[in-house]
C-alpha cells in the first residue's frame, strides 16, 4: 500500500473508529511537533457541467499537523473535520508506517478502517440498488 492510499484512508476515517483502533494498538511513540494541529478550511472545487471550467463550490473543514518520531521519520496528518486528536493519530500512524512497525499499523489500523469504510459503502450501495426502478412509458389515451 502506498502512502497516498493510507493517508486517504486516515483522512476519511470515522473518528470514533479511528480512536478505538488506535487505542487498541497501545502505542505511545515519542515524537516532537513540527506543526501542531491546526484547524482550517479547504476550498472545494467543482466543474461546470461536471467536466468544464472549475469553480469554487464552498469550503470544508480540515485539521492538519506534522510531527517527527524521535530519530525517525516525519508523519503528516490531514483529516476531515475539526479534530486535533484525529489529526495527531493520523500523523503518528503515517510516521510509524514508514518504520519497522508498519505491518502492525496496516493490520491493526489501516486495513480495519478500509474494511469498515468499504462495508458502509456496500451497505449504502445495496440500499440504493433496492430502489432501482424500470420506468415503462404507457401509451397515452389522447394520442390514441
Amino acid at each position: 500500500m502506498d502512502r497516498k492510499t493510507w493517508l486517504s484512508i486516515l483522512a476519511k476515517a470515522d473518528t470514533a473508529e479511528l480512536s478505538a483502533l488506535w487505542d487498541a494498538l497501545a502505542l505511545a511513540p515519542a515524537f516532537s511537533w513540527l506543526r501542531r494541529p491546526q484547524i482550517g478550511a479547504v476550498m472545494v472545487q467543482g466543474r461546470a457541467g461536471g467536466t468544464g471550467a472549475a469553480f469554487n463550490l464552498g469550503e470544508m473543514t480540515v485539521t492538519r499537523c506534522t510531527l517527527q518520531l524521535e530519530n525517525g521519520p516525519v508523519g503528516v496528518g490531514y483529516v476531515q473535520g475539526r479534530d486535533a486528536a484525529k489529526a495527531e493519530i493520523a500523523a503518528l500512524a503515517d510516521a510509524l508506517l514508514q518504520t519497522a512497525a508498519a505491518q502492525a499499523i496496516l493490520d491493526g489500523l489501516i486495513e480495519p478502517l478500509r474494511a469498515k469504510a468499504q462495508a458502509r459503502k456496500a451497505g449504502r450501495a445495496a440500499k440504493a440498488d433496492a430502489t432501482r426502478v424500470d420506468f415503462f412509458t404507457l401509451v397515452r389515451g389522447e394520442d390514441g
Binding site: 482550517g40 476550498m43 472545487q45 467543482g46 467536466t51 449504502r124 424500470d134 415503462f136 412509458t137
Partner: peptide, 27 residues
C-alpha cells in the same frame, strides 16, 4: 479559518450514488 488551499475539482462522474434519475432517458 485559515485557508489551507483548494482541492482538485471533484469528479462527480465517479460519485457513489444514493440517487440517480433522469427525466430524459428511461433506460
Amino acid at each position: 479559518l485559515p485557508r489551507f488551499g483548494a482541492s482538485h475539482p471533484v469528479e462527480t462522474g465517479d460519485m457513489a450514488c444514493d440517487r440517480r434519475i433522469s427525466a430524459t432517458f428511461k433506460d
